[in-house]
Simulated assay, not measured.
Amino acid sequence: MNERDIAAVARLRVAAFFTGTGRTLDDDVAGLRKLLHGDGFETAFVARIGDVPVGTCLLVRDELEPAHDLTPWLAGLAIAPEHQHRGIGTALVRAIEAHATSLGVEALYLYTWEARD
């Protein structure tokens, strides 16, 4: 992810995860900027078609509201609806897995809203 991706990625994420919550577009932009300027462990990958971001996936140490000590997380996989079912999500997950492996991570945790129970 680079600076010019942040607004589009935040819009994808807000639409996918935060509609009806208290998290705003500005909140998500701020969180993504922290990833961009962090220590390199936490990261966001972006899939683009041309110059347009159409998907994203994150590697983060903690979930938004951690109630546990599990870490790190594959998080925030979001693909624009019109680009789903084309292998973009799979490619993003593989990129996160490769990044995590390069950092010595042996296991990733995954949170999914649909399977939260």
Rank of each mutant, 00 (worst) to 15 (best):
M1P: 01
E3Y: 02
R4N: 12
I6Y: 01
A8G: 02
A8M: 03
A8D: 05
V9H: 01
A10E: 04
R11G: 05
L12Q: 00
L12Y: 00
L12M: 09
A16I: 07
F17Y: 15
F17N: 10
F18G: 00
T19S: 15
G20T: 08
T21P: 07
G22Q: 14
T24R: 14
T24N: 09
T24D: 11
D26K: 12
V29R: 14
R33C: 03
R33F: 01
K34Y: 06
K34S: 09
L35F: 03
G38T: 06
D39S: 08
G40K: 12
F41Q: 07
F41N: 05
F41D: 01
E42T: 06
T43R: 12
T43G: 00
A44T: 15
V46T: 11
V46G: 03
A47K: 07
R48S: 12
R48K: 14
V52R: 13
V52P: 00
V54G: 06
V54W: 01
V54R: 05
C57G: 06
C57A: 15
L58S: 00
L58Q: 09
V60P: 00
V60C: 04
V60I: 15
R61I: 02
R61E: 08
R61P: 02
D62I: 04
L64M: 13
L64E: 12
E65I: 11
E65F: 15
A67I: 13
H68W: 08
L70Y: 13
T71F: 04
A75D: 10
G76Y: 00
L77T: 00
I79M: 11
I79G: 00
P81K: 08
E82N: 14
R86M: 15
R86W: 07
G87Q: 10
G87V: 14
G87W: 12
I88W: 04
G89V: 09
G89C: 13
A91S: 14
V93L: 07
R94A: 05
A95N: 06
I96N: 00
E97W: 05
A98G: 04
H99A: 04
A100C: 06
T101H: 13
T101C: 07
S102A: 13
S102Q: 12
L103G: 01
G104R: 07
E106G: 13
L108C: 04
L108H: 02
L108W: 02
Y109G: 03
Y111C: 02
Y111M: 05
T112C: 14
T112G: 13
W113I: 09
E114H: 14
